[in-house]
Amino acid sequence: MNERITAAFADVPVCASVVGTAKVADFANAASRVGILAAVPVGQLAKIVPVLTGLEKILFVNIDSCPGLATDRGGVDFLHEIGATGVVSTRVAPIERARAVSMLTMHKVFVTDRSNLNRSLEAVKRSRPDLVELMPAPIIPWMSAQAREVMSPFVAAGFVTDRAGVAHSLAMGALAAASSDSGLWSLTRSQLSAGEK
């Protein structure tokens, strides 16, 4: 398990899912130290990424969702050049390339049925990412302990909309929960334990 990622989630176990540019400032000001940047046009990435990483945020860019950004070696190299900390993808090749240039990696997995789960497990075994973004979070209790182990460490994502969702994700073995709800981006473990609002 990557110590830098573990340390980043030690206090705030929430990964900010920053979709588009509207909530970039919210993430910049949030206590969450880890974020996934998605759906940002390639022309804006070079402006946004250095600002967030300059704030010591661990910033993964979803290479699959950013308009104009190729999901090939060149796209990964571009993200590396502008200072992105890591890459998120559903594909093995970009993850392997990101690892080759010493970036952090997150393999995004959608579990829709048993056969899809088996294919996803094989893909994760090949890509050997630092983290798995496991979606949707409500499916996790239905996965075997062995499947969760292969996917670990993982961030539970999809339908995490409140504190209970974060707490449930952690209880199911997630290192953290990912959410696009900026109201959760400064939620601490101590607040969860104390049941604070």
Rank of each mutant, 00 (worst) to 15 (best):
R99Y: 08
K23C: 14
P67A: 11
R126F: 02
E149A: 08
R148V: 01
V87S: 13
I58M: 05
S186Y: 00
D130S: 09
A164N: 14
M151T: 01
A8P: 14
P41H: 10
R114H: 08
N29D: 13
V132R: 14
N62T: 04
F9W: 07
I95M: 06
L37A: 11
L131V: 06
L104G: 02
S120T: 04
E133M: 02
F27M: 06
V14C: 11
R128D: 04
D181S: 05
M103K: 11
V24A: 09
A93F: 15
V166R: 02
T85Y: 15
P138E: 05
L52M: 03
Q146P: 08
S89Q: 03
M106K: 01
E81A: 12
M135Q: 14
D64W: 03
S17D: 01
P153G: 04
A167S: 12
A177V: 01
V160Y: 10
A167Q: 05
W185P: 06
E96Q: 12
V34Q: 00
L55G: 10
F9M: 10
A30T: 04
L192K: 08
A177T: 05
H107K: 13
P141Q: 12
F9C: 05
I36M: 06
F159G: 15
P153A: 02
L175I: 06
A93M: 14
V109S: 02
N118L: 01
F60L: 05
S152Q: 07
H168T: 09
T112W: 04
M106W: 00
T21G: 13
F60D: 04
D130P: 07
L45C: 15
L131H: 09
G43R: 03
F78I: 09
L79N: 11
A8L: 07
G83R: 03
A176T: 00
L52D: 09
A46G: 09
R97Q: 12
N116I: 14
R189I: 11
F159Y: 09
D72I: 12
I63M: 07
T21F: 00
S127V: 04
M103Y: 04
V109K: 05
A156P: 05
L175Y: 02
R119G: 13
G83K: 07
F154V: 05
T53I: 10
L104T: 10
G35K: 00
P129A: 02
M135L: 10
T90I: 14
N116P: 00
T105P: 07
